Computed example of a mutant assay.
Amino acid sequence: MSSKQRRERLKAEVHKSILVAAMSIIKNEGAEALSIRKIADIIEYSPTIIYAYFLNKEAVLIELARQGYTMLIEITQNRLALVSDPKERLEVMLSAYIQFALNENELYQLMYTTGSSVPNVEKSFPALASFMNLYREQMQLITGGTLLEDTFYSNYLVCVSFIHGLALINRYYKDIDPEMNNIVFKKAVKGIISTIEFS
């Protein structure tokens, strides 16, 4: 391995360790507790090193949110690979979204709180546009390609609203029985599908 390759590998490892440390702080103390100093203490580097990778704390949060969208797309695509019926695929997508929101609670909240603080969310998070396109393509399959963009967008916002609501309920009621949660998931997915317009 050349010295240049070693430097690049070390650089990638430090970058990753910064993000892992930041996510650890967020999970244990909340996003508001995140600081460059705390990250530096965890990875045992000086804050100056971290500033060589990220301009400030907000840049770290944005990068974590970007990773969250990428992870959500990957999970959704993996689930989609298992089904072929268009409506069933939409149900699978919604279920994957809900499960991600619950399993990656802190990251999910971070994705949306960070998104609300940037001037242009789609520019800051290109993966968000890719994620929306998964829904757009699926809804177009169901309608035979006749779905208008305004109708798609209202459908998509309905989906997101339901999922935010479910995620919030699980944050509030922390002791919900998993079986009860499953019942709620199924009812919610049916409810979402029933509200979607396909013309």
Rank of each mutant, 00 (worst) to 15 (best):
L110E: 03
E8D: 14
K16T: 08
K11A: 12
A59R: 10
G115D: 09
S161V: 00
V158T: 15
V118W: 07
E91S: 13
A52R: 15
I183W: 01
S124L: 07
F185K: 15
G191F: 08
S84R: 12
I25Q: 00
E122F: 12
M71Y: 05
L134Y: 07
L72H: 08
M23R: 07
I36N: 01
L72T: 04
A33W: 02
L82W: 00
F100M: 03
S154K: 14
Y153G: 00
D177W: 01
E137G: 00
S124G: 06
G30H: 07
S3D: 08
Q140Y: 01
Q5F: 02
L102R: 10
R136H: 14
L34P: 05
I176W: 06
A31C: 00
A129Q: 06
N133D: 14
V118N: 04
A12P: 02
M132P: 04
V189K: 01
F198M: 13
F131G: 07
N182G: 01
I43H: 08
V60S: 09
A40P: 10
F198T: 07
D85E: 15
N120K: 11
L19N: 02
I36L: 11
M1Y: 03
P119D: 11
S199C: 12
I98S: 04
M23P: 01
I39E: 01
E104S: 05
I192T: 04
R9K: 14
G145Y: 04
P178I: 00
S95T: 13
I169M: 10
D41L: 08
I193L: 15
P86C: 05
H15S: 04
M23I: 01
L148D: 13
L166S: 11
R66K: 15
V83L: 05
I142Q: 08
L168D: 08
P126L: 09
Y135L: 13
I43F: 00
V14Q: 11
I176A: 10
L148F: 06
I163S: 11
